[in-house]
Design a protein around this nucleic acid. Structure first.
Lengths: 223, 223
DNA sequence: ACCTGAACACCGTTCAAGT
DNA sequence: ACCTGAACACCGTTCAAGT
């Protein structure tokens, strides 16, 4: 790839991410091109279709969230190590896994609510793209690990999986969509309620088993 | 309104509802007109814009859900009346309010998941329309009444409002969107989890107060 | 190789001509 | 009054001409 192509690709991705976040994913390609300072045709040289452009940005954001989750996971593991090693100085071990899991979910919801395009993309499209699939799997893996930690705390019921967590993040971000940003932090209310539903105290048997990776790949093919 | 106009309006609404439900809200107006057997221009005689057509259908569906909720509410009230009157023959009074509330939420989610347009409309648009606002308020009122019943049972925490319920219905329907209909009844899993979060047993204090009607009207103006 | 803007097809919306 | 399809503006996508 030539140097100017490289540079244009970056300009394009940045401009597109900003425009999508501000105005939703129906901003015109022309407008994005202007903001990036490149020709309209150049957009389609880098991404065969507008949807593929959205897809690339979406995958990037999922990867960012996965990285956040992995950092949180290292935190709980390190803290656990300290606990078993010395047994002093650390906070209450019983809630650490739950805190990390809630922080992860909060980060996920927060990323979506500030970003109109993310909201819309998360809902429907772009799941077929292998790039997005890979990011999704990484996300589910770290979610599963964080859930396992919280389970060990006894603060999360044992029939909840990493895939459940990813889907609940999605659900929580959509909860307040009808209100726009009229009540800025409102999503925390619903994430809290959902998190209470994850606790063992109120757990009732679930009517349907958790989805497996198979179902996600099947959905990707079907779309 | 002339008789043929009346007839065309009905044909249009039915065709549009079907097309939207099957293919999402980006089906072309031309296609809807063909299915309705009317001219493209006639669509715009009945609804000034495509979005207003969507809005009308959306409001209708919200009204349908409100009616379901009101029927459920009459059911619990009637049952409660029998209970206090005779005190025999009825089922366990303690869970009736909870059952009705869950049935209401299930009906709401079910209506959305089978309907691609409903999903997308619920997410973003059309909240400004007064018709939709009225339907929304009616929905929130019946949700509030059902919640009150469940509270009396002691099966729902007391910091949950009707507006919360409406937003949670929205959230639950979006939860499984990434999976399409790969796992048909999967939404029941997440509605169950959320419902467990509504029970007093696991209730933790919520970080943000419930939204008021004011916020919804403000959001409507802003959109 | 890559960039560009004019050209094309499609879709929402308008409107002049019909009944 | 209401219906209709041709006409318009706009947007995603393509491509011939440039460097």
């Amino acid at each position: 790839m030539r140097a100017d192509a490289m540079r244009n690709r970056r300009l394009l991705l940045d401009a597109a991410a900003a425009e999508f976040a501000e105005h939703g994913m129906d901003v015109s390609v022309a407008r994005i091109a202007v903001r990036a300072g490149i020709g309209k045709g150049t957009v389609f040289r880098h991404f065969a279709t507008k949807e593929q452009l959205i897809t690339a940005i979406f995958a990037d954001q999922l990867d960012g969230l996965a990285a956040t989750g992995e950092a949180l996971l290292r935190g709980t593991e390190a803290a656990a190590g300290v606990d078993t090693g010395a047994g002093v100085g650390a906070g209450p071990a019983v809630a650490r896994g739950a805190d990390a899991l809630l922080a992860f979910m909060s980060a996920g919801v927060e990323a979506q609510v500030g970003d109109r395009a993310f909201c819309q993309a998360a809902g429907a499209i772009a799941r077929a793209d292998p790039q997005v699939r890979r990011a999704s799997q990484r996300l589910a893996a770290v979610a599963e690990a964080l859930t396992a930690e919280a389970r060990h705390d006894g603060s999360v019921r044992d029939d909840v999986t990493g895939h459940d967590i990813v889907l609940l993040i999605n659900a929580a971000s959509q909860a307040t969509a009808p209100l726009g940003d009229t009540v800025p932090g409102l999503w925390r209310r619903y994430l809290s309620m959902m998190f209470d539903g994850l606790r063992p105290a109120a757990a009732h048997p679930l009517p349907v088993p958790a989805p497996e990776e198979t179902h996600f790949t099947a959905a990707a093919r079907h779309a």
